[in-house]
């Protein structure tokens, strides 16, 4: 869950508590960042500075790790995050066409958040559900074996505020 602005103090307190409870701070940076992203939803500069201070390391070292790994993000996601799998199995089954359809339909490219903050589109590398290729994840739901045109009606549903049954 992303940290809402009026809970910021509680969020930092939770993170601080997690760090204090670690058996050792040696080598714990990635685990701490996982926790921080879980609390805040993303890792803005202030959070990185906080982690650096608590772990007694240089902020540059924290930034170096955050920017290295694809799992960590410095920008917030949309309310309805869309992840499209661009693993090989999905690629040969036409994942690129789906990216194009999404782009055409809601004017969103990979790596972008829509202006109203409603949707964000990310590419992921293989979710391991290759038999269901091509696969799109919307929020926590997986839509597999997608055919041309299907993604549009799914997105329309989310725009109207309804979600679909997992198929």
């Amino acid at each position: 869950m992303a940290c809402k602005s009026h809970y910021v103090d509680e969020c930092y307190a939770e993170l601080k508590q997690f760090i204090e409870k670690l058996p050792t701070q040696k080598g714990a940076l990635i685990a701490v960042l996982h926790k921080a992203q879980g609390i805040f939803g993303f890792l803005p500069e202030e959070v990185q500075d906080f982690v650096a201070k608590e772990l007694h390391i240089n902020p540059a070292e924290v930034y170096g790790v955050v920017s290295f790994y694809s799992f960590f993000t410095m920008t917030p996601k949309g309310d309805t995050p869309i992840s499209i799998c661009l693993g090989t199995a999905c690629y040969v089954k036409g994942a690129e066409d789906i990216v194009a359809e999404i782009k055409e339909h809601i004017n969103l490219d990979v790596g972008q958040v829509s202006e109203d903050g409603k949707f964000s589109l990310d590419a992921v590398r293989c979710v391991g559900a290759c038999s269901l290729a091509p696969v799109v994840l919307i929020k926590d739901k997986v839509y597999g074996r997608l055919k041309k045109g299907e993604i549009k009606s799914i997105l329309d549903g989310y725009m109207k505020g309804e979600s679909h049954e997992n198929n």
Binding site: V127, G128, A129, C130, S131, L132, V142, G144, N166, N167
Partner: peptide
């Protein structure tokens, strides 16, 4: 497993 659960 993950794929089975995903498929329902």
């Amino acid at each position: 497993a993950t794929c089975g659960i995903t498929a329902g």
